[in-house]
Structure formats: structure tokens, C-alpha cells
Amino acid sequence: MKNRIRFDPMRLGIYTLLTLFALLFLVPVYVLLISSFKPFAEVQDLSRMWLPPKQPTLESFYVAWYGIPEKGLRGLSLNILNSLKLTIPATIISSMLGSMNGYILSKWKFRGADILFALMLFGMFIPYQSILIPLTRVIAAIGLGGTLWGLILVHVVYGIPITTLIFRNYYAEVPTEMIEAARIDGAGIFKVYWKVLFPLSLPGFVVVIIWQFTNIWNEFLFAVTILQRPELQPITVALRNLAGSQIKEWNVVMAGTLIAALPTLLIYIIMGRFFIRGLLAGSVKG
């Protein structure tokens, strides 16, 4: 088969097209990089907008990270920390719930389990605007208003459908015979999970954790309505505020954008394979 790959105009065309598309996809990255390494004076010079910095500087990253306290400009370092404090617990809790749910729904189907599953799944498609007004009130009523835990609870709850879905599809591929065998040895529901399914779950967990981490890290609507205290804001909200300020230091905004994007981007680059699996699982059938 390999021998068939040889030079011909058709293949040259294919590679040219692919490269062209790749360059187009990278345009925003290019702009992001060159702008964030420019000093303020240079980024103001619009004739140089598309040219690389004359003298690359880390100044804007410094400002974006530490802020300028005397000017009331907060740095993003705190917000990155907030996002981590939010994303990590929410990811772990929702993955565990999803794993248990997926196990039950794939291996212990009781009457009506499929209907129940469909009803659960619907929760991941709804426009969150349609639950936002009650949500803010309930979160406040249970004393979690304006706290990270409130937002964590929200992400756990609305993460249940997708994590359940991915695990259900994942466990569906585990042969029923393995479960039967364990049952004959007298294992109950949880023992089967613990002895048979859980040891096989690592790839499933990786997919789900990556997926949830990315989604929660990138989420904006819940964060902006539930958690507005500046010292608790996650990175997406802080970034939007930075970009929405009256006087735009675009080099700082671009540096901030890069900072905000980096964690999920790194995960994607390092663990792309699992990321794609999560992506495909999102289309219900898996």
C-alpha cells in the first residue's frame, strides 16, 4: 500500500490545500502571539498590526498576570487560581457520578432506564438561559450565592448528562460475560463495579476528565451570573472584563487571552487523542 504514495500533481494539490487551510486556522494564533509580545506603543501602531514585534517583550504578560494594582487593574493570576479551584473539584465529582451512573445504565438496566437516560441527556442540550433565573435564586437560598462551591455544584449537576453518556457508552463495550462471571462468584452491584469495571475505567476517566475540565474551564454564562465577586471570578469572566475595559491595551488583552487559553490548549496538545474521543462521544451515539 505504502508504495502507492508517490509524487503526482494531484497529491501536490492536496498538500497545498491542507497547508493553506492550516495557515488560515493559525491566523488568530499568529495575531495573538505577535500582539502579546509587543510593547504598548507598538501595538498602537496600526500599520504594524500584522508584523512581528520589533523587540519582543514580556511586558504585557507581566501586566496581564500581575495587573497594575495602583490603576485598579487586577492581574489574571488570581483568576487562573480560581478557575483551578473551580474546575478540579467539579471535574472530579462529576466524573465519579458519571461513572456510577454510566455503569448502572449500561449494566443494570431496570425498567424504564432508557427513558430515564433520555430524560437525563436532555439536560445537556437545554439553553442554560432557561434555568438561569431560578438557578441564581436557589443557589442564593441554599447559602452558596457568590461562592466557588455554588458554581461547582452547578457544573457538577449540569455535567451529569455528558459524563453519564460517555461512561455508559464506554461500559457498554465491556463484555457482559465478565460481569456474569463476577456475579457467579457472588459479587454484588458495587463489588462488580469495583472489581471488574473500575480497573478498566482509566481511559474512560481520562476522556471524561479532559472533556469536563475543558468545558468548565471555558464556561462563561454560569460564571458571569453566579460568581461575580472580582476576587473569585474565573478566568473567562476576568478576561471578558479585561477586553471590555474602556482603554484597551490590546497587547495586555492578547497576553491575557493567551494565558486563559493555555491550560486547555496544553491538555489538548498533549492528550489530543482522548480529547477527540470526548468530542465524538458528545454526539450521543459515540
Binding site: 486556522f25 488568530p28 495575531v31 495573538l32 473567562t236 490548549l265 496538545i269 489530543g272 480529547f275
Partner: peptide, 17 residues
């Protein structure tokens, strides 16, 4: 990887850029 990386970004990041 190049075609897919924007999927890993937040809509907020995309919007700003």
C-alpha cells in the same frame, strides 16, 4: 491538531481574538 485546536478554546477567547 491544527484544525481541531480551536475546539479546546473558550468562546470568550475566540471572541476576544
Amino acid at each position: 491538531t491544527i484544525y481541531l485546536f480551536p475546539m479546546a478554546l473558550s468562546f470568550v477567547v475566540t471572541g476576544v481574538v
